[in-house]
């Protein structure tokens, strides 16, 4: 299970059977230049692999308004 903290929404999403950043973004319906993906303070590119229990911060970059 991958835990995703979505910003700036402030919501938490749990994603089962998700093994890469690319897969996380697909499940969240985000193109990969639309959000930053961070694990333990490190920015991740879409090709990076994930492991069960990883906690991610996904920050959408489009400013509202």
């Amino acid at each position: 299970m991958i835990t995703v903290n979505l910003e700036p929404d402030g919501t938490v999403v749990e994603l089962p059977d998700t093994r890469s950043v690319h897969a996380v973004l697909n499940k969240l319906r985000l193109r990969f230049t639309m959000a930053l993906v961070v694990r333990n303070g490190e920015l991740l590119t879409p090709d990076r692999k994930l492991k069960d229990g990883d906690v991610l911060m996904v920050r959408k970059v489009t400013s509202a308004g």
């Binding site: 700036p8 230049t33 930053l36 961070v38 920015l43 920050r59 970059v61 400013s63 509202a64 308004g65």
Partner: peptide
Amino acid sequence: SEFETANYAFLKGIEIHSDPCPYATGASFT
């Protein structure tokens, strides 16, 4: 791009004000 600026801000440790304006109603630009 907005993505590139967001990456720069993150890497430079810039704490940003990201709450949308309470008066904004999903402007057409978005």
